[in-house]
C-alpha cells in the first residue's frame, strides 16, 4: 500500500501542492483528476523522488519510508512511474528499454516472466524488439513506457496522463491494460484529464484543485456527483 501524508511542494513562492494526503491499496485503481496546473504531475514526480517535496511529509510503501529518497531507491522500493511524455530511451531499442526496466534488483529474477507479460499485453513490441524507440509512433512509445514499468516488478504503478496525445481507440486500449494490471494485484495511481474514461475504470478518485485535495470518494459516487459532472464531465 502506498500512503502519502501532508505532502507540500513549492516552486519558489508558488505552492504547487498543499498538504496532500492519499493512499493507494494493492489491486485498486485510484484516479487523481484536476485541471491543467492543478498539481497532478507534481504529485507523481514528488512521490517518485524526481522533485524535492518540503519537510514534514511522510510517504511509505508497504510500511517502508520513502520520503526524500532518490528516484532509483524509490523504484527499488516498488513504485514505478510512467511519466508524462513517456520518458523512454529514444536512442535505444525496444529490447534494451525493456531490459533496463528490469534493472532494479527486486526485478532481475522475474525478468523473463515480466517480459512474457509485456509481450502478451503488447505483441507489437515482441515483433519490434530491435527497433529504435524514437522511430516508433506515439502509441507504441507509450506501450514501451508501460512495458518498461511492468519490467521493474512494481507493487504500485503511477501513470501521468497515459492518454495524452493518443487516439480514442488507443486510449481505450491503454485503459484496458490498466484494468488487466490491477487484476494482477498491482495498485495503480492514475493522473488524468480524461475524467469520464478514467472514472469508469477507477475504484476511487481524488479531485485536485489548486494544489489541494477537494473532493474524494468512490469512483461510482464521483461520476454521479453534481459538482464533479459540472467541472470535469461537461455538465
Amino acid at each position: 500500500m502506498l500512503r502519502i501524508e501532508n505532502m507540500s511542494v513549492a516552486y519558489g513562492h508558488h505552492r504547487a501542492l498543499d498538504n496532500v494526503s492519499m493512499k493507494v491499496d494493492s489491486g485498486e485503481i485510484v484516479v487523481v483528476l484536476g485541471a491543467n496546473g492543478a498539481g497532478k504531475s507534481t504529485l507523481l514526480k514528488a512521490i517518485g523522488g524526481m522533485i524535492p517535496a518540503g519537510n514534514g511529509f511522510k510517504a511509505s510503501i508497504n510500511g517502508l519510508q520513502i520520503q526524500n529518497k532518490k528516484p532509483h531507491t524509490i523504484v527499488e522500493a516498488g513504485i514505478a512511474l510512467v511519466p508524462e511524455g513517456r520518458g523512454v530511451f529514444g536512442e535505444l531499442s525496444v529490447g534494451e528499454n525493456l531490459k533496463l526496466g528490469a534493472n532494479p534488483k527486486r526485478a532481475r529474477k522475474h525478468e523473463n516472466k515480466n517480459l512474457k507479460t509485456v509481450f502478451d499485453l503488447f505483441p507489437v513490441l515482441a515483433r519490434r524488439k530491435n527497433q529504435l524507440v524514437r522511430t516508433m509512433s506515439g502509441g507504441e512509445q507509450q506501450m514501451v513506457a508501460i512495458g518498461r514499468a511492468i519490467m521493474s516488478q512494481p507493487d504500485i504503478m503511477m501513470f501521468d496522463e497515459p492518454s495524452l496525445g493518443l487516439s480514442p481507440l488507443l486510449t481505450t486500449e491503454v485503459f484496458k491494460v490498466l484494468t488487466l494490471l490491477k487484476k494482477t494485484g498491482v495498485g495503480i495511481l492514475l493522473v488524468e484529464q480524461n475524467a469520464r474514461q478514467s472514472l469508469a475504470i477507477a475504484d476511487r478518485g481524488y479531485l485536485l484543485e489548486n494544489g489541494h485535495i477537494g473532493q474524494s470518494g468512490l469512483a461510482r459516487d464521483l461520476i454521479e456527483d453534481e459538482a464533479v459532472r459540472k467541472a470535469y464531465l461537461g455538465g
Binding site: G48, M50, P71, V75, L81, F89, E91, K105, R148, S152
Partner: peptide
C-alpha cells in the same frame, strides 16, 4: 540518453 528517465529504471 536521458538522465532523468534513467532514475526511473533504478539507475
Amino acid at each position: 540518453v536521458d538522465p532523468a528517465a534513467a532514475g526511473l529504471v533504478a539507475i
